[in-house]
Design a binder for these strands. Structure first.
Ligand SMILES: [Mn+2]
Ligand SMILES: [Mn+2]
Ligand SMILES: [Zn+2]
Ligand SMILES: [Zn+2]
Lengths: 145, 145
DNA sequence: TTATATTTGCAACATAATTGCATTAAAATG
DNA sequence: CATTTTAATGCAATTATGTTGCAAATATAA
C-alpha cells in the first residue's frame, strides 16, 4: 500500500514508458486526490520540477495508454483522473458520470453511476457518451445548508 | 419566412438589446446552419465586419438573454446554437442531448432526445445535466459505410 | 435635434496548448 | 561497466482562446 513508487514504476514499464521523474510525480499527485485534477493545478504544484511542455506530454502519453482519462469541466478546462477499471491503450471504458461542483469546482468521478443507454434519431451512430452533472457536491451542500 | 431581419430585430428589442450590425449578423449566421457553430468559425466568417471582442460580447449577451446556448465540444471549443424552446434571461432549458460527429465535427442539438434523470450518490445535488454523445452523424455514417 | 445609455473597436494582457530542435537521460546491448 | 540507442525533456517561439479598461461611435429615447 505504501510503496506507491514501486507500483507506479511497474505501471510505466507495463506501458512501455520510461521511468522518469515528471511521470512519477504526476502519478503521485493524481493518485493522492479524491477528485479529478486540473491541468493548471498540476502545473502550479509541479512548479519548476518540470517544464509546462513536459507536463502536457506526460498527460497526453498517460491518456493514450489508458492510465488516466480527461474530463473537461464547464469552462472547458482539462481535468485528469486515474482510470479505475482496466482501461488500456486502445480501450478506455470510463463511461461513468462526472460531477462538477458549482461551489468547490471539484470534479468527481462517479464510478458507480453509469450513463444510461440512449435512443438517438435514425442514422446517428453513438460511439461514446459523456455526461457531466453540475450542482453541489456532498461536502458543499452540507456546508451551505 | 424570408424576412429574417425583421424577426431578428424584434428579438433584439424584446430582450432590451440594441439593433446593431454585429448582432444581426451573428443571428443570421447561426440561424442559417443546421448544427451548432463554433466561435472560431464565426470569427472567420465575420472577418473584419466585427472585432473579435465584439463577437465575444455579442455571444455572451445572447447567452445571458436566452437567445443562444453554448455547447463545448470534445476539445473544449465553444459552439453556439439558437435556443429552440422558450429560453429566457433567467431560465435556459436546453437539457437535450448534443451529438458531436467524429468525422465532420459538427455538433447537433438533438432537441427530441431528453437527458434521462440521474440517480447520484447521497449528498450530491444535481442542478444541470450536460450529455454529449460522440460518434457518426447520419450524413457521415452514410458516406463512410 | 440633442441627450443618454449602450455598444463597439483598439490595445494590452492572460492563459492554454502546440511545434521544432538541441540536449539529456533511461534502458538496452555487449 | 562502458557504450550505444532510443525516448524524454527543456527551451524558445508561436498559435489559439478569452478577458479587461477605456475612449470613440452609434442607436434610441427625449
Ligand atoms: Mn472519471
Ligand atoms: Mn442544443
Ligand atoms: Zn463542492
Ligand atoms: Zn458528421
Amino acid at each position: 500500500m505504501e510503496d506507491n513508487t514501486a507500483r507506479f514504476e511497474k505501471l510505466l514499464v507495463k506501458n512501455g514508458l520510461k521511468r522518469t521523474a515528471p511521470r512519477l510525480q504526476v502519478l503521485e499527485i493524481l493518485s493522492g486526490r479524491d477528485s479529478a485534477t486540473s491541468q493548471p493545478y498540476l502545473e502550479q504544484v509541479m512548479g519548476k520540477d518540470a517544464d509546462r511542455v513536459t507536463l502536457y506530454r506526460v498527460l497526453q502519453a498517460f491518456e493514450e495508454k489508458g492510465i488516466i482519462h480527461k474530463v473537461l469541466d464547464q469552462q472547458g478546462t482539462a481535468n485528469y483522473a486515474i482510470c479505475s477499471d482496466g482501461c488500456s491503450a486502445h480501450e478506455h471504458h470510463d463511461e461513468h458520470v462526472h460531477f462538477n461542483c458549482d461551489n468547490c469546482h471539484k470534479i468527481y468521478c462517479l464510478d458507480t453511476v453509469k450513463i444510461p443507454a440512449l435512443k438517438v434519431p435514425a442514422g446517428f451512430k453513438v460511439d461514446r457518451l459523456n455526461l457531466i452533472a453540475t450542482g453541489l457536491c456532498a461536502g458543499c451542500s452540507d456546508k451551505i445548508n
